[in-house]
């Protein structure tokens, strides 16, 4: 009996009291409700706003600062920062990959579960008509959105700052070849886009730490330390496949795009590695969160 009523309500949503009931259900519970609640909390968070603002403001300041100095020659593309604005963008990408992007990944994600712990708000949160799983995925999705948004802002800000303050001259590639202005812009965009995969992997690591350690400070600083250690491990010679199994290695997969002939092996390896890290960390975090005893604590 209820089936025709529901379908009728769906077809004609404005037919009175009966019609309102089925439409009201999804707004009260489940994943969308959890997502909305988490989004509200996130938009009220000062640190999330500061993060996004910094991603927008800092790159132009750095590019402007580089203009008056002897080029930094110890990082790839450092030598070319006065010759092409694209080099500035790539220098910032290379620099950000060391610890800035892990910090971007952990600033919100590292706090998201541990923060509930610190404020003692788990019980309040779980008395709402949403499951732990809904809360978990809502927090994961929003952490990923913040990370990707920060990366996008940083990429656009760095690239536009380079193009406006230094110029759109052709770029020297990593095989010494000259890359035309348009091709360089496309490759720069692709390079920043490739950083999304390791960034999401670092976000997943931060989420796992946040869920397990239950301390916001550890959740935020931990991934930065882990990122630095992984970068260090990847920089040690003779680690062969171990190097490729680290998510931080994927932050450098763009190098191949600027070689002639270009090679994309590291790109695919990086995507695969990061996907595995992301899935494993999220599953571990979910298992831990769903099974842990919150009510008794």
């Amino acid at each position: 009996m209820s089936a025709p009523l529901t379908s009728g309500a769906a077809q004609a949503p404005a037919t009175g009291v009966l019609a309102r009931a089925p439409r009201a259900v999804p707004t009260r519970g489940g994943f969308p409700a959890a997502l909305r609640a988490e989004a509200t909390k996130l938009t009220a968070q000062l640190r999330a706003k500061l993060l996004l603002a910094a991603c927008l403001v800092v790159p132009p300041v750095v590019v402007a600062g580089l203009a008056g100095q002897r080029p930094p020659s110890d990082t790839i593309y450092g030598r070319w920062v006065h010759e092409s604005g694209y080099a500035d963008s790539l220098l910032l990408l290379g620099f950000a990959a060391q610890w800035v992007l892990p910090l971007v990944a952990s600033l919100v994600a590292g706090d998201t579960f541990a923060g509930e712990e610190a404020h003692g708000t788990w019980k309040t949160l779980l008395t709402r008509s949403v499951s732990r799983s809904h809360v978990f995925w809502a927090k994961c999705v929003l952490s990923a959105v913040v990370s990707l948004l920060a990366l996008l802002l940083m990429a656009v800000s760095a690239t536009v700052a380079g193009m406006l303050l230094v110029g759109t001259q052709p770029l020297v590639g990593l095989s010494g070849q000259t890359v035309g202005s348009t091709a360089a812009l496309e490759l720069v965009a692709a390079s920043w886009a490739l950083a999304a995969a390791p960034l999401l992997a670092m976000t997943a690591i931060a989420l796992l730490l946040s869920a397990r350690v239950r301390n916001p400070a550890v959740g935020v600083v931990g991934p930065v330390v882990i990122g630095l250690l992984m970068t260090l491990l990847g920089a040690v010679g003779g680690t062969h496949l171990l190097r490729r199994a680290l998510p931080t290695t994927a932050f450098e997969s763009w190098h191949g795009l600027f070689a002639a002939p270009a090679f994309t092996g590291p790109v695919w390896q990086g995507l695969l590695t990061c996907a595995v890290w992301t899935v494993v960390c999220l599953l571990l975090a979910r298992v831990h969160l769903v099974r842990r005893d919150i009510t008794g604590g």
Binding site: S73, R79, W80, G176, G256, A259, F263
Partner: peptide
């Protein structure tokens, strides 16, 4: 202008 050959960065294909 920056001398391209004074010092330069090169990346090799590790999988080749």
């Amino acid at each position: 202008v920056t001398n391209p050959v004074y010092a330069f960065d090169v990346c090799m294909d590790a999988d080749a």
